[in-house]
């Protein structure tokens, strides 16, 4: 994949993050405002019962999977860019090694994160 596609997905990831992170922030941190407008039901969003309700919901499963995958891609693409920029004496082979190392590390985190989110969903519905 050429850098043009990396960059394109970097932008797409930013858009997805903007949407799902807004939902996350709205629910978890701005619940007072949302409750004031009647968008959310009153109650402590961090209580065990509320967390369990969210964990059972397919919509939240999708939101958190999207947030994690796209945030990982967005962040690690940025990290790669910084490393490549700050190491201008690095050879082409070095850049490829850095790129693949970051990709594999990110992939490992994505698999582990997906497992945690999906396991939470399965356990909550058991």
């Amino acid at each position: 994949m050429r850098d043009s596609m990396f960059w394109f997905w970097h932008l797409m990831a930013a858009i997805v993050i903007l949407i799902v992170l807004s939902i996350h922030f709205g629910v978890m941190h701005l619940e007072g405002i949302l409750q004031m407008f009647g968008i959310m039901s009153a109650g402590d969003v961090r209580s065990y019962a509320e967390v369990l309700v969210r964990a059972k919901t397919v919509a939240y499963l999708v939101i958190y999977l999207l947030l994690m995958w796209f945030a990982l891609y967005h962040g690690f693409y940025g990290l790669r860019s910084i490393i490549v920029e700050m190491s201008d004496k690095m050879s082409k082979a070095g850049e490829i090694v850095v790129g693949w190392s970051i990709f594999l590390f990110g992939l490992g985190l994505a698999i582990y994160g997906s497992y945690v989110i999906i396991a939470g969903f399965v356990l909550a519905n058991a």
Binding site: R2, D3, S4, F6, W7, R80, S81, V84, E85, D88, E95
Partner: peptide, 9 residues
């Protein structure tokens, strides 16, 4: 242009 030190940088 289309590499890590090109336009996307």
């Amino acid at each position: 242009m289309d590499h890590s030190h090109g336009v996307w940088h």
